[in-house]
Amino acid sequence: MDQQQILARIAEMVDAEKTLRESLASGAIDEATERARLGALERDLDQCWDLLRRRRAAAEFGGDPGAVRARPAAQVENYQS
């Protein structure tokens, strides 16, 4: 997956997040469904942002961005700020 594909995937997920919030507001889904779907979406977004940052860093510092792979969600989710 190249940088443009990652950014396109992020944009898709942001749109999906908006749709979920609109569905909750309109009563089309309940809060439990929204929470479950948003949780999965947020994990996927975190993975994409992590992958994008690491690929950019590899390119900046002479590495091969194509060799950088997505990390498991559990690893990305347990980062400390």
Rank of each mutant, 00 (worst) to 15 (best):
G63Y: 05
D44A: 06
G62D: 06
R35D: 14
P72Q: 10
P72M: 09
L38F: 12
M13G: 00
A28K: 14
S26Q: 14
R54N: 10
M13S: 01
E42L: 11
R56W: 11
D44M: 08
R43L: 08
A16Y: 12
G66K: 03
T19P: 04
R9M: 09
R71A: 12
A58M: 02
R9K: 15
A67N: 07
A70F: 06
R71H: 08
A36W: 05
E77Y: 07
A70D: 06
G63I: 03
R53V: 15
R56M: 15
A36Y: 12
V68I: 15
D2P: 11
I10M: 07
V76M: 03
W49L: 14
T19M: 09
Q4V: 05
L45G: 05
D2G: 15
P65E: 01
G63M: 07
A67G: 15
L24K: 04
D44V: 08
L38M: 12
G66E: 03
M13H: 00
D2R: 09
D2L: 13
Q5T: 05
Y79V: 04
L38T: 05
T19W: 08
P65T: 02
E12K: 00
I10C: 07
I10K: 01
A32P: 00
E34V: 11
A8L: 04
Q80F: 13
C48F: 01
A11F: 04
A25I: 13
E22N: 14
L7H: 09
Q80S: 13
R54W: 05
E34Q: 12
L45V: 10
L24I: 03
A11D: 09
F61N: 07
R56I: 12
A73D: 06
C48T: 02
A59I: 09
Q5P: 00
R69L: 12
D44S: 14
P72D: 13
R54Y: 04
